[in-house]
Design a protein around this nucleic acid. Structure first.
Lengths: 213, 213, 213, 213
DNA sequence: AATGAATGAGGTTTCATTCAT
DNA sequence: TATGAATGAAACCTCATTCAT
């Protein structure tokens, strides 16, 4: 009978060997999660996949939830943050929107398994969901500010609530990506999706641009 | 976890008493699911909530998945299927869209707990997810056909891929509803949401209407 | 992975079969505890000893601590509560004291294994220790009141603090019993112990009695 | 739990550095034992408290039991052995008894945490219990011899079995100390306890002394 | 049809101990 | 000597499902 509370675990490694093991565990966790899904992933499997003893998992993590967090942290770089204002011909809003949509869809397709996983874990783990919403909010804010700028320049429909419009259109893109690349709905190419989504954005925002005359 | 194939399957009740018990179980299941979520709902809890013995559950159902199906069947009526073409001033597409969005959001808000549950179970139960996608597809088809009609009438942007546009815009609405009523993102009123969403639809579809002159 | 807190368990049986099983578990627990000691007793062993599946333990108890409580409750009757005033020639305090000591020692010897167990668990389980101290206090109170009565009758040394004296002399008897019957210190007979202890009590309390002229 | 016989045993340190480490470990062990109790003290905690790596523990000790022994050896000096014949006015047995009781109680109070620990470990570790009983026996022998001397001088009740009486009265004192300073029973001052205990001893032994005329 | 008790597989978690550096 | 990571045995506990009344 355990006579003691968990106490600690979840330490950062000090030695090189420890660092290696931790990395192996995170990689193994990612593989197991992508293969079995969050719920069916057993800690045992992660240890095995990493080639370490079952107990070694607890040298670095406290729970499945915690490794999952580590996997996500590791992966953050990999998932790009497409920004509406970054690319291409900065003066033509249509080009900007198109570039952003393309970047997003490509990244989504590239990491489809991971995105599926995130979607799943969001429905299972309260903390992760909250964290994710927070990030999405930041992203939407940026888009909203960009939209306000367009409205000021007289390029976009000034009657739109920028916040809501940004939220709704972002949701549209991410949901389309989810349906296409995780759920396998439809067979359209990235370019087909980019074309339609951009046209919808442009119309929705009331942008008048030479691109679509 | 099933160690053998179930000896008997959930049967339809024969006696009046049986009918009552089955109804009690389904109601209890809904309450427990909404309270604890799908994963944490124990069959034991459902029986207890229904005021029957643990074993009685298996007189009517084989598994958690199965009661969940029954709950959904029971609830189907309650969840409306907003159709783009049904209400109001059928000749003004803006009115039609607005009415559909309003109906959808109101229904979503009314059944928010249930919608959260469906979203969750979609991520957990393969079968349920597939079933739900099938329904969503049917719904989208209808919208796509309506859009084609608008394009033929010269009211909507003829260059849009009707399928994709319908899918994307439906996804937008349902995701906004999810964020607002399940995740608690924002504090906007139904009317505010309806206003923005409708304006986005109308713009996106390139509808030229007196309503928005 | 358990996704749920313990929830409940530890129910009282409703059916006759359940009652039988619970009794079997308590008896088995007592046997295992007396054989292996509290710490080394495994819940698994208790179930096995009772001839039921491992999981069945949790139908009636939540923890080792809880069965132990049940064992003690079951046993309470069996352990007599020797009272200084009950037996024999009520007017002769020496007879009364002697009878009480004899009764106590006999009971202790009869339940030596159990008493050893109680002593052990007192050092391990906070709650049990507190409970036991509470009982001991009640017992001491009674003795203290009896002593006050003797002091009022002019039979016992009036200068003694009755509370303290009662506590000290009770402790003396129980500790002697523990040393003799649990630790195996000495080889004296019950009567030898009764003789000395009574003589010590009588002297300590300053009782002047014909019995010891 | 040991799965193999220990490859090496706790050695005495050779270097000065080693000596320091060993001392740190013993001190840490005492602190952890007093804080967490014997059972809940983890070797890991002791190492941490001592500020050394987990593995370093095994350079000096083989087991928890072994450090505990070292702690006790370290502490032996600190725990006085009150002797009935040592102090004060050697000719007045009452003074002698009183002085011994006072010395014992003061020492017990001073080391209450440690005494609690010893009491606990006695119930858990067979070897330690035996060792402790042996010491107690030696102590009782001395008291018994002193009592015989008193009987020969005609000062104490000659009918008492000296062995038993010494054992019983010593047990009384140590148990009262345990209840008062470890279990927190009562609020009496040392002097109040000394007063009552001495009076009980004197009466119990049938000592006739000017002190109590 | 209902009851409620029994079953048992199997993943989780701990921590004393070992050992390569 | 010290370090700190790795090991792995072992018990716990849950709860879906069965089944005798």
């Amino acid at each position: 009978m355990p006579r003691q509370l968990p106490a600690h675990t979840g330490r950062a490694p000090v030695s090189a060997r420890g660092t290696r093991t931790r990395i192996a565990l995170v990689q193994a966790a990612r593989a197991v999660f992508e293969r079995d899904g969050y719920l069916d992933a057993r800690i045992t499997d992660i240890s095995a996949e990493a080639g370490v003893a079952a107990g070694s998992f607890y040298t670095y993590f406290t729970s499945k939830q915690e490794v999952f967090g580590a996997v996500m942290a590791d992966v953050e770089e990999e998932m790009l943050h497409p920004r509406i204002l970054e690319p291409a011909d900065r003066d033509d809003p249509v080009h900007v929107i198109e570039a952003a949509n393309r970047a997003y869809l490509l990244a989504y397709r590239r990491n489809a398994r991971l995105m599926a996983l995130m979607e799943q874990v969001s429905q299972i783990d309260e903390d992760f969901r909250r964290q994710r919403l927070r990030r999405a909010r930041a992203f939407t804010e940026r888009n909203a500010r960009a939209l306000v700028a367009l409205q000021r320049r007289g390029v976009a429909d000034p009657q739109l609530d920028a916040q809501l419009a940004a939220r709704a259109l972002s949701a549209m893109v991410s949901r389309v990506a989810y349906l296409r690349y995780v759920q396998g709905v439809g067979t359209e190419s990235v370019e087909a999706l980019v074309g339609v989504l951009t046209r919808l954005w442009v119309g929705a925002l009331g942008i008048r641009s030479a691109t679509y005359i």
